[in-house]
Amino acid sequence: EETVVIALYDYQTNDPQELALRRNEEYCLLDSSEIHWWRVQDRNGHEGYVPSSYLVEKS
C-alpha cells in the first residue's frame, strides 16, 4: 500500500538527485529509510529526494 504525503512548503532545487516540491501537492512516498531525506514521486512520475521535514503524511 502506497503512502501519500503532502508538501507543507515549496522546495526549489538544482540538484538532479532531488525533486522540487509545491506546497499542498501530493506525492507518493517511495523511501523513508533516511531520517532527513525521503524519496518521493510526483504525479508526473518524476522521482527525487526531498527534505522530510517539508512533508506530512496524508491522513
Results as ranks from 00 to 15, higher is better:
residue 33 S to T: 12
residue 55 L to T: 02
residue 49 Y to C: 14
residue 2 E to T: 14
residue 51 P to Q: 03
residue 56 V to Y: 09
residue 55 L to W: 01
residue 46 H to S: 13
residue 4 V to N: 08
residue 8 L to Y: 03
residue 23 R to W: 05
residue 30 L to I: 13
residue 17 Q to C: 06
residue 9 Y to Q: 15
residue 10 D to A: 04
residue 53 S to M: 07
residue 31 D to E: 10
residue 9 Y to S: 13
residue 47 E to I: 09
residue 29 L to Q: 00
residue 32 S to Q: 12
residue 4 V to G: 05
residue 37 W to M: 13
residue 28 C to M: 13
residue 19 L to W: 03
residue 3 T to S: 11
residue 2 E to Q: 09
residue 22 R to G: 07
residue 54 Y to C: 10
residue 49 Y to G: 04
residue 51 P to K: 04
residue 41 Q to I: 09
residue 18 E to G: 12
residue 45 G to Q: 07
residue 26 E to K: 05
residue 5 V to T: 04
residue 57 E to H: 08
residue 32 S to H: 13
residue 36 H to R: 11
residue 51 P to C: 02
residue 56 V to R: 13
residue 5 V to E: 01
residue 54 Y to K: 06
residue 51 P to V: 01
residue 34 E to M: 11
residue 59 S to C: 14
residue 34 E to V: 12
residue 16 P to L: 07
residue 16 P to I: 10
residue 24 N to V: 01
residue 22 R to P: 00
residue 6 I to A: 06
residue 40 V to T: 01
residue 55 L to H: 01
residue 6 I to P: 03
residue 50 V to L: 01
residue 54 Y to N: 04
residue 43 R to P: 08
residue 19 L to D: 00
residue 47 E to H: 10
residue 16 P to Y: 04
residue 34 E to C: 08
residue 12 Q to R: 11
residue 25 E to D: 15
residue 19 L to Y: 03
residue 53 S to V: 06
residue 21 L to M: 06
residue 18 E to K: 15
residue 56 V to D: 05
residue 48 G to A: 04
residue 8 L to G: 03
residue 48 G to I: 02
residue 40 V to E: 00
residue 39 R to D: 02
residue 28 C to E: 10
residue 23 R to C: 11
residue 59 S to R: 15
residue 7 A to V: 00
residue 39 R to E: 03
residue 8 L to I: 15
residue 20 A to K: 15
residue 15 D to S: 15
residue 24 N to A: 10
residue 8 L to N: 08
residue 12 Q to N: 08
residue 39 R to T: 07
residue 26 E to Q: 07
residue 4 V to C: 08
residue 52 S to D: 02
residue 2 E to S: 08
residue 44 N to C: 11
residue 42 D to I: 00
residue 17 Q to H: 06
residue 30 L to S: 03
residue 46 H to N: 14
residue 1 E to F: 06
residue 38 W to L: 04
residue 15 D to P: 13
residue 26 E to L: 05
residue 58 K to G: 07
residue 27 Y to E: 01
residue 58 K to T: 05
